[in-house]
Amino acid sequence: MTRAWILLAIAAAGLATPALAVSDVTTVTGAGGVTLRSVTVDLPESDREFPGADAAAINNNCLTCHSAGMVLRQPPFPREKWAEIVNKMIQTYKAPIDAADVPAIVDYLAKR
C-alpha cells in the first residue's frame, strides 16, 4: 500500500467537483494472492420524466431521490394507498415536498 488518494467526500448532491489526486497504486494483495483493485465506475443517470400534461407536480417533487422507473412500474392502487405512499416519502424519507403539491401528485398517481 502506498499513498492514498486525496479525497473530498462531497455531498451526494454534488455541489462541488472534488479535486482528486490519484496515486499509482490501486491494488491491495493478501495471502493466497487475493488481490483487490480500486474501482471507478460511471453510474448511468435517468432523465426520464413522468409523462402527461398533469405531471408537473410529480416531476417537481418525486425525482430527487429516485428515478421514475420504479414508480411507473407500480400496479394500480386506490387513491388512499397513493396518499399513504406519498406521505411515507415525506414523513419517513424526508422528501422536501410542498404540502400544496400533494393533492396533484396523488391525483396523478391514482388516475393510472
Binding site: M1, W5, L7, T26, R37, S38, V39, V41, D42
Partner: peptide
C-alpha cells in the same frame, strides 16, 4: 460512491 480506493 462511484470510486473506491482499496489503499485507503
Amino acid at each position: 460512491p462511484e470510486q473506491v480506493d482499496v489503499a485507503s
